[in-house]
């Protein structure tokens, strides 16, 4: 039984087709990679899954519930959470406050309880802070709790995005280029973190990635997009041998360059 089912989803922008009839099924507790040359529609797909865009046609089902076209906060409540390609932290909040914002759905404080602070609210707030610290530790950011997000190092910011996304307690986590701009050592650590997400927290993960070493190393299934269409799907070794994938990448020379350049 698939946790996420993308069914014949298309999306166009003023006549420009960004996604064309894409269908993807994701099994629970798998790590799925979405790859493809620049402009293949990978981020558009993420934006549709998180409610940022509405698909022009097609449906998205998550946990047996239709989620396409729902507002973003409802999709988050349904259990989908994400990180961003161009890191989008609340940069003037501290690391732990970023994660606390992620806990929004799991706290019940309203104006009245915020002003009166009954013991239950104080307890819940304290628990949220402890949990947030826990998320930060999981993402490898222990000791950085009170640092402003914008003062964190680049790699730390990527990790903070993951910690914040985890605070939403998602069943499905979308990572948009989690290792972009990282050196080999940092990438290795990130791969380890991604595996832990699934193994320890039972989160299903979909990631967009350009570094083939990461994709092949961590993903169990891979979907390949090119010019908005899904051209291949399968295990890493299947995809690597797929003629259309090789053509798509040779056409742009991207597979080679991305791999060598990283």
């Amino acid at each position: 039984m698939a946790i996420l089912s993308v069914r014949h989803v298309s999306r166009s922008f003023e006549g420009l087709v960004a996604l064309n009839d894409v269908s993807i099924d994701v099994e629970p507790e798998t790590i799925v990679g979405v790859i493809g040359p620049n402009g293949a529609g990978k981020t558009t797909l993420f934006n549709i899954l998180t409610g940022f865009y509405r698909p022009t046609s097609g449906e998205v089902w998550f946990l047996d519930k239709r989620v396409d076209g729902l507002p973003m906060h409802k999709i988050a409540a349904a259990g989908i959470s994400r990180t961003f390609q161009n890191i989008r932290l609340f940069s003037n909040m501290t690391a732990i406050e970023n994660v606390l914002v992620g806990q929004h759905l799991h706290l019940g404080t309203n104006i009245a309880t915020a002003v009166l602070r009954p013991p239950a609210t104080t307890r819940a707030e304290r628990r949220a802070v402890e949990q947030s610290a826990e998320h930060l530790r999981f993402a490898g950011l222990a000791g950085r709790e009170n640092e402003l997000a914008r003062n964190l190092a680049y790699g730390e910011q990527r990790r903070l995005e993951i910690a914040r996304a985890l605070a939403v307690r998602p069943r499905l986590l979308l990572l948009d280029e989690p290792t972009a701009g990282m050196n080999a050592g940092e990438s290795m650590a990130m791969m380890k973190l991604i595996r832990e997400l699934r193994d320890d927290l039972q989160v299903t993960v979909i990631l967009i990635e350009h570094q083939m070493r990461v994709v092949m190393g961590v993903c169990e299934r891979i979907s390949v997009l090119d010019y908005g269409e899904k051209i291949a799907e399968g295990t890493p070794s299947e995809v690597q041998r797929d003629q259309r994938v090789i053509e798509a990448y040779l056409g742009t020379g991207q597979l080679k360059r991305q791999d060598a350049g990283s």
Partner: peptide, 12 residues
Amino acid sequence: EDEDVASSMGID
């Protein structure tokens, strides 16, 4: 700070 990200954190 960032309205879109805020709503992707579940904030209405």
